[in-house]
Amino acid sequence: MHSDPSPVRPVGRGAKVRAAVHAATLAELLDKGYAALTVENVAQRAGVHKTTVYRRWKDRESLLTDALAEHMAMDIPVPDTGGIETDLRALARSLVQSFTSPTGQAVLAAMFTGAAHLPEIAAARRHVFDDRLARAEPVVTRAVERGELAGDTDPAELFKTLVAPIYLRLLMTADPVDETTADQAVRVTLAAARAGALRRARDGDPASG
């Protein structure tokens, strides 16, 4: 029996192929950066033919966008610890852990520097934020039901307040980002929420206009 001389080994179809290609895309991004990312290298690393990749993604930009969105959505779990402070702490610490990992750093570099000019990447950033907001909203809903937060607390404003100091350090100041950063973000966010600064805008409310 002759062995297959091809370096490409089939990995299956459907979801399995998609997962393999996504993983290969992130690995290539980590190893070589956005500028050197190619569909051919991704396909070889994933163990599929490049025609298989092109059947699902029209170019490297759409492939990268899909892989980034999937990675960012799946990498941050939705906590349910029974309390708003511990929920937010788990959420913020997960965010910090994700973005300070080697893969997280590569993802940030692609989304905010190397490929930041692409409309597809701008759309991916919006998709990632919307997805994270949708996943974090139950944290606020449960806190309201437990009486820990006011009923008009705006989940979007709370989430923005929570992540803002983390992103500031990651993208602007290059200050250290660790669990202390996450915990401080939680304290500030809860203080703002309990002071009524993160409520939903209503018709006629100055905050709405």
Rank of each mutant, 00 (worst) to 15 (best):
H2Q: 10
S3K: 07
S6R: 11
P7I: 06
P10S: 09
V11Y: 10
G12V: 06
R13L: 11
R18I: 13
A20S: 02
V21D: 02
H22K: 08
L26E: 09
A27D: 14
E28Q: 14
L29M: 09
K32M: 12
K32C: 12
G33L: 00
G33T: 07
A36Y: 10
T38Y: 01
N41A: 09
V42K: 12
A46K: 12
A46Y: 02
G47T: 00
V48S: 09
H49Y: 10
T52Y: 13
R56F: 12
D59M: 06
E61Y: 09
E61N: 11
E70D: 09
E70Y: 12
E70A: 14
H71R: 03
M72E: 15
A73G: 15
M74E: 14
V78M: 14
G83A: 07
I84V: 07
E85R: 03
D87H: 05
L88R: 04
L88P: 10
R89W: 14
R89Q: 09
R89C: 02
A90P: 09
L91G: 05
L91T: 08
R93N: 11
L95I: 08
V96C: 14
S98K: 09
S98E: 05
T100R: 00
T100Y: 01
S101H: 13
P102F: 10
P102E: 00
T103M: 07
G104H: 04
L108W: 00
M111C: 10
M111S: 14
A115Q: 00
L118A: 13
P119E: 03
P119A: 00
A124W: 02
A124Y: 12
L133Y: 08
E137T: 10
E137S: 01
R142G: 05
A143E: 04
V144R: 04
V144P: 07
E145V: 03
R146P: 07
E148K: 07
D152T: 07
D154M: 01
P155S: 08
E157R: 15
L162K: 05
I166S: 03
R169M: 00
R169V: 11
T173K: 04
D178N: 15
D178R: 14
T181R: 04
R187H: 13
R187V: 05
T189W: 03
L190S: 00
A192I: 09
A192P: 14
A197S: 15
R199V: 15
D203E: 00
